[in-house]
């Protein structure tokens, strides 16, 4: 599954980030395979979403979250 499919409050572990325009930027921001994520907030209209990545909260659009593959934990 990918990050855009996570439900509010669920924990997951990043398994892979798809190669795309945003990949390097996401890596720089600490969105790395092996990091834990928690879906914390969903903006009005369901997009963007805010996730805890490691130790901080990052917001990103659902479209870009779909490129981040995860495993529920």
């Amino acid at each position: 599954m990918n990050l855009s499919e996570l439900h509010l409050g669920e924990h997951a572990c990043i398994t892979h980030v798809k190669d795309g325009d945003l990949m390097l930027k996401l890596f720089e921001m600490g969105v790395l395979p092996g990091e834990n994520v928690i879906l914390e907030n969903i903006a009005p209209f369901g997009d963007p979403i805010a996730v805890m990545v490691g130790e901080y909260k990052l917001c990103l659009r659902v479209r870009d979250a779909a490129n981040i593959e995860i495993e529920l934990i």
Binding site: D21, L22, K25, L26, M29, P48, A50, Y56, K57, L58, C59, L60, R61, D64
Partner: peptide, 11 residues
């Protein structure tokens, strides 16, 4: 250029 929205939400 591709547009995206990546932003940190500070405490």
């Amino acid at each position: 250029q591709k547009n995206y929205f990546l932003m940190e939400l500070p405490g």
